[in-house]
Write a protein that binds this DNA or RNA. Structure first.
Lengths: 233, 233, 233, 233
DNA sequence: AATGAATGAGACTTCATTCAT
DNA sequence: CATGAATGAAGTCTCATTCAT
C-alpha cells in the first residue's frame, strides 16, 4: 500500500504507548486516509467533513485541529498521492532500453498503479474541479517531470525534433490521452476494482507514439506541416 | 449563436399569439438557454434551480413543469450542445484533402467552436462529474463519429493499419488530448473569452499524428510492438 | 400592543382566505414578532434563527425567504420598535404646558412605554453591540427629534442658552441618563414584567433639569463655567 | 533562623527562580492582561479562550488551572480595571475647590483615563451584556463612591437638597450621561486611540450641573416639582 | 502545573423539491 | 400552466471544556 506505508513501523509490538507527536501524526494520517477512501468511493462532492471524520473514527471537531478547512485537506490529497504515483512509476522504469520502451513501461506502470490505489483515478479526475489548487500543483509536477524525460530523449536523438514549446504540448496531450484511456478502460464503477487494461490499448498507444496516426504516403509528415488556415498569417 | 438558432423562427408577424405548444416549447428553451449560460458562467455546482429560473425570468416552480429534476436538465445540456459542436465542425471540414489535412482542420475547427460558444468548454469539462449520463451520451456520440472517420481513412489507406479496437483507443486518446489542450491553451478565466490557440500547439499536434513521437531509428515502430510485461508469463 | 397592531384587521371574520400578499406579510410579521419576543426574553446573542423560527412556528428555511441574513432582521428590530416608541411618547405629550412640564411628561411616557413593550429595554440596550447598524439609525432618529425639541424650547426662552453643539451634548446626556435609569429602575429580570418607576426618580430627574446639581452660592452657574485645565489654551 | 537562609533568595539577582506561588500569580496575571487586551481589541464576543491563551503565550488547557470558567475571567475584568480607574480619578481630584470644580475635574479625569487605558471604554460598554456579574459589581462600587461624594457635598451645602434616594438617582443619571458621552465623543474606532473630548462637551456638562436645563422663568424650578400624572387620581 | 488533542453541540445558510393558489 | 412560499435536510465551522500525558 504505497500511501499508507509511510508511518514508522511502531517498533516491537507496542501499540498502547505512543508519544504525543506520534498520536498526533497518527490522527492526521487517519483523517488523510479516510479522506482518500471517501473521495475514492463517493467523490469530492460527497466527501463531507462529517463523512470523513466518521470514516476516520474521530469527532467532527477533531478535523479542524488538523486542517484549517475542508478544502485544505482536499487540496493536499492529489499532490500527496500524486507524488506516490510518480515514485511508483519511477521504480518500475529503472531499467535500460530505448525511450520508446521506457515510455511504454511508464504507460503500463501507470495502469498498474491504478490497480494498487484504486482511489487515484477518481481523485485525479475530480481534483481539477474540486481541488483546483492541488490539481494545478500536481499537473505542474507531473508535466515538468514528463517534459524533462522527453527533452532528454530528444537530446539522445530518440525523440523527434520537437521544440521545447511543442514538447510541452505533447506532454499535455499524452497526459490527456492517459486520462481518457484510464477512464475508459480502467474504471469499474460497480465494485471499485480496477481491471487490467486490454492489450489493444497498449498496442494502440505504442503505435501512435512510434509511427503517428497517418500512413506515410507522400514522403514525410514534416514535409507538410499543419498551417493555420483562417486569420492567415 | 449556433445553439439557439435551432428554434423555428415563429413566422412573420406572430409574436403575440402562440399556440400552447409553442409557448410551452419557448419556456422550455428559455430554461435551457439560461442553464447553458449559468453553467458556462458559474459551473454546474453553482447552477441552482433558483439561479437558472432567475436567468430565464420565470418562477422557480415553473422549472418543474418542464424537467422532472434539476439533474434532468443538466444531463441534457452537453448532448444538445455537443451535437451543435459536431455540426459546426463538419461544416468546416467539408472540403477535400488528405485525412491528415482534414484532421488538422477538425482540430482547428474545434478550437474555433470554443470561441463561438465559450460556455462549451466548461460544460464539457464539468459534465463528466456533474452530468455523467449526459457526458457518457456525448462521449459515445463523438467517439462514434470520430471512429467512423478514422476507419474510413484507414480504408482509403491514409490511416495506418490499426484494428477496430485500436481505433477506438486512438479516438479516446485524441479526445483526451484535445481536452487537455483546450483546458491548457484555450481558457481565459478572467472574462470568459477564449483566445486563439498558439501555433506550436497546432504544429505539435500535427507532427505527433504525422510521424509519432519517436525518431525512426532502427526500422519501423511496428517492428517492436509493446508487449505486456507482467502477467505475461 | 403598539408594534403588532399595524396589520389590517382582516375584514369581517374571515381567517381562511388570504391573498398571497397577505399571507406573505403575515409570515414576515410572525418572524418579526418572534424575533422581538426572543430577543426580549433571551437577548440578541441567544436569538438564533432556529429559536426565532420555532417561536414563529415556521421552518428554519422560511426565515431566508424573508431576510437575507439573521443580522438583517436583527438590524430592523430596534428602528422599527423605536419608531413605535417615539409615536407613543408623542401621543402622550400632545398637551400644552411649559417645556419643563413637557419634558417631564416625555420622561414619564418613556417609562410607560417600557411597561407596554417590555422587550424594548433589552433590545435597546443590546442593539448597540449586536445590531450596530440598527442602533445607529435609532440613535440618530431619537437624538434628532430630541434636539429639535430642545432648540425650540430655547427659542421660546424656556431652555437655557446652550449652543447647538451643547444641545447635542445635552441630548446624549439625557438619553444616557434615561438609559441607565431605565436599567436600574425598570428592569425586573425574573418575570420580564416592568414595574412602575419610583417617584423619587421622577423628582430627581425634574430637579436636576430644573435647577442643576449644585446649590447656587455665589451667583449664577454661567458665571463660573468649567474650563479646560490641561492642554492650556 | 539561619537555616532558612538556604532558600533561594529571590532578591536581587534571582529572576530565574520564582517560588511556586509567584510563578502561579505571574501566569494568572499574564492571562488577565491578555484578556484585557483581547477584549479591548475584539470585544467580549470574540474573546475566546483560544485567543486569550494565544495572546498570553500559554496552552489552552492552562487557562482552566486559573479560572473555573471563561466567564469567570470575563467577570473579573471590569471590577479590576474599574478599581484602577477610580484610583486614577481620585489622584487627579485631590485638590481643594468647590464641589462643582471637583466634579468637573472628575469628569475630565474620566476622559483622561480613557486615553491612558483605551481598552476600558469597550470593556465598560460590553461588560453589561457579556459580564453582567462583573458589571453589577463595578456599577455598585462606582455608584457608591459617587453617592458618598454627593452626600458630602450636600452636607457642605454645595449640592442642592436632594434626598438620599434622589442622590442615587442622580448618580445613575450622571454615570449614564458619561457613558453615552464617552461613546459619542471619545471613541475612535480606527486605531483604538482615544481623542480628547471637545470643549463644548465639558461646557454643556458643567452648565447642566450648574444651572439645570431650563431657564428660570416664574420663580424657582423647585416651586413646580414634577408630579405623577397618571395613577395619581 | 502545563499541555494540547479530543469532543460534540450548535450556529448560519443553501437548496431541491412540493403544493396550494 | 405559472407562481412563489414553505420545507427540512445537510453542510461547514467555532468553541468551551475535559483529560490523559
Amino acid at each position: 500500500m504505497p500511501t499508507s506505508a509511510r508511518l514508522p513501523t511502531k517498533g516491537k509490538l507496542a501499540r498502547t504507548k505512543l508519544t504525543r507527536a506520534e498520536r498526533n501524526e497518527l490522527t492526521r494520517q487517519k483523517l488523510f486516509d479516510a479522506a482518500r477512501k471517501v473521495v475514492g468511493r463517493l467523490g469530492y462532492a460527497e466527501a463531507s467533513v462529517s463523512r470523513i471524520t466518521a470514516e476516520a473514527g474521530v469527532a467532527q471537531g477533531t478535523f479542524y485541529n488538523y486542517f484549517v478547512t475542508r478544502q485544505d485537506l482536499l487540496d493536499e490529497l492529489l499532490p500527496e498521492i500524486g507524488k506516490d504515483m510518480l515514485r511508483f512509476i519511477q521504480e518500475r522504469t529503472r531499467g535500460e532500453g530505448s525511450e520508446a520502451v521506457r515510455e511504454a513501461d511508464r504507460f503500463r506502470a501507470f495502469f498498474d498503479y491504478l490497480k494498487e490505489v484504486p482511489e487515484f483515478l477518481r481523485i485525479l479526475n475530480e481534483a481539477e474541479l474540486f481541488a483546483p489548487a492541488g490539481y494545478q500543483q500536481h499537473i505542474r509536477t507531473v508535466a515538468g517531470a514528463y517534459a524533462r524525460l522527453l527533452r532528454r530523449g530528444r537530446e539522445k536523438g530518440e525523440v523527434q525534433a520537437f521544440s521545447d514549446e511543442e514538447i510541452e504540448v505533447l506532454v499535455h496531450m499524452l497526459m490527456g490521452a492517459r486520462g481518457y484511456l484510464s477512464q475508459r478502460y480502467a474504471y469499474t464503477d460497480t465494485d471499485q476494482s480496477v481491471t487490467t487494461v486490454p492489450d489493444h490499448v497498449l498496442s494502440a498507444y505504442g503505435k501512435l507514439l512510434a509511427g503517428g496516426l497517418f500512413a506515410e504516403q507522400q514522403g514525410a509528415a514534416q514535409a507538410k506541416p499543419i498551417r493555420r488556415k483562417r486569420g492567415g498569417r
